[in-house]
Design a protein around this nucleic acid. Structure first.
Lengths: 156, 156
DNA sequence: TATTGTTATACTCTATAACTATA
DNA sequence: TATAGTTATAGAGTATAACAATA
């Protein structure tokens, strides 16, 4: 790793932090183009393959249930999600994507994928695979340690 | 972005997104232990080696100047930063860390470094270097493309 | 006139505490 | 009583628009 372009070598931590920052920024700007905040984007992502209760949703998003109430209110006001009464528990409410919400989720996800691909342009195919492999290894251990559902990540 | 959440091999985009999510989470939780939001943490980070005007600060943080006013207000109320009148421009105000702000910034930064090191535990030393190298390459190109100051990243 | 910064206003996001309805 | 969810309230964070002071 040379410094021939006048750029100092970053520490591993710095490099990783800045990479995360870049990826996060990509996602944020992409979401913003659809008038979506990160948390609204995550909400749509979580709902792509689930129909959780408010309570479960709070678990996935690591938010208080009262925060989720407002979140879902605002998404529902935009016609992206809807509340569905539980058939088995009179207290519970499920949250589901509307057709429009599903379409938007799919679109944002596809665009994000493109954005990240383009971010990775400087790497050769083999290097991307290496990066993916190393990242996956780190993530797998972190998920296990923290006992989280992997699929509650950025877009899921 | 795939829809399955098992332990299958992740796509490069998924792996990268989840890695970013993990790193971001580490930083967020670390900051929260000091009652700092991400943006307050970034504010302290930016000020570690700068004494910018409000306007320049808005540029570093990519926020509107009115947002920066409030941000600095709250940090100043906690004794972490202070406003300093410009010696050369009667309109301008510089923002600087207080002693307490500098100490906190150093502490959070050191702790964050530890956190990320521990996140990277599953990787061997050589793999970490590879990861850092690939990340740095991606970041360097992104920074150039977007014309940003590299040092306005997560902790700087 | 142009620039720097603050203030007024409005909205999203978040948590805590109090509440309602159901189990 | 305990649980699921909403509402009331408070505060951080953000942007837009209007403003004051200085250049």
């Amino acid at each position: 790793m040379s410094t021939d372009s006048g750029r100092e070598r970053l520490s591993t931590v710095d490099a990783l932090a800045q990479l995360s920052f870049a990826v996060n920024g990509v996602l944020e700007r992409r979401a913003a183009r659809h008038d979506l905040s990160m948390i609204q984007t995550r909400l749509l992502g979580v709902l792509r393959d689930r129909r959780p209760t408010m309570n479960q949703l709070a678990g996935y998003l690591e938010l208080d249930k009262s925060s989720v109430s407002g979140l879902v209110d605002r998404a529902a006001r935009r016609g992206l999600v809807e509340r569905v009464a539980s058939a088995t528990d009179g207290r519970a409410v499920h949250v589901a994507l509307t057709r429009r919400g599903r379409a938007l989720a799919a679109r944002v996800s596809a665009e994000f994928e493109n954005d990240v691909e383009s971010l990775l342009e400087p790497l050769a195919a083999a290097q991307r695979l290496t990066l993916a492999d190393l990242a996956a290894r780190v993530v797998a251990v972190d998920v296990e340690r923290r006992g989280l559902d992997l699929s509650a990540g950025p877009l899921h």
